[in-house]
């Protein structure tokens, strides 16, 4: 299986060239196009219960698609937001993805759902997060560009910009300023991350876009 990410960073999409025996798992609405000899099979996103939990709390879809082929062909995968896509090779390590970031993975990658904790909830990111582990490539997307950062000690991020992080990183919601100014400015909460470990950030925030759009609708 060969893959590359095309048209980075603004309109990134993934081209995966597959041959017999390859299997690819992708978010149910990620496929933009594919050759006719690719077979597509929908299955629950890791068992019915886990799929439901992911759907309800993780913002992921109930089904994932599994692609395979008898010959050779390719699949083009994309994401709903305009932005970059990152490909990461897991080697037995684990990564947490914020809701909606997951696009696809190789068959050796295990999809799970993890309790994200109160910090995540308070930060507006939901109680659960997608957990990817095992071996193989995983693709995830962002709004805007993606950059990774190795965190040693403490680092402050705006919650809306956090796309993914390793389990070795701790997250804590924190007021950005005083109690009242945080409450009324809307810039209320930031996330204090603590390493060691790596975090992935997106250069744009959907929440900020939504707020900006709202402010122009009135």
């Amino acid at each position: 299986m060969e893959s590359r990410i095309i048209d980075r960073p603004s309109f990134a999409h993934i081209r995966v060239d597959m041959s017999a025996g390859d299997r690819l798992v992708a978010e149910s609405d990620a496929m933009a196009s594919m050759t006719s000899n690719i077979q597509l099979k929908a299955r629950f996103n890791g068992g019915l219960f886990r799929a439901l939990v992911r759907r309800l709390f993780g913002g992921e879809s109930l089904f994932v698609n599994e692609y395979s082929t008898d010959g050779t062909g390719h699949v083009i995968l994309t994401q709903p937001t305009p932005g970059d896509i990152e490909c990461l090779e897991l080697r037995g390590n684990t990564l947490y993805l914020q809701g909606g970031a997951f696009i696809a993975c190789e068959a050796g990658v295990k999809l799970g759902v993890g309790w994200a904790g109160l910090a995540s909830l308070i930060g507006g990111e939901g109680l659960f997060r997608l957990k990817v582990g095992g071996h193989g490539k995983v693709w995830f997307g962002a709004y805007g560009g993606i950059f990774a950062r190795e965190v040693e000690g403490e680092y402050i991020v705006d919650t809306g910009h956090l796309v993914a992080y390793e389990p070795s990183v701790s997250l804590r919601a924190r007021l950005s300023g005083g109690l009242l100014s945080s409450f009324f400015s809307g810039e209320g909460l930031v996330t204090r991350v603590r390493g060691p470990g790596r975090i992935y950030l997106q250069t744009r925030s959907i929440a900020a876009l939504a707020a900006w759009t709202n402010s122009h609708l009135v």
Partner: peptide, 29 residues
């Protein structure tokens, strides 16, 4: 898991053991 610059990507999952000498990790690779 292990973080080390010598690893490709700087990280890998690993099985750990602890004995009197210290902590040992071996990756799937």
């Amino acid at each position: 898991g292990v973080f080390d610059k010598r690893l490709q990507g700087g990280r890998a999952g690993a099985q750990l053991t602890v004995d009197a000498h210290g902590v040992h990790a071996s990756t799937t690779a």
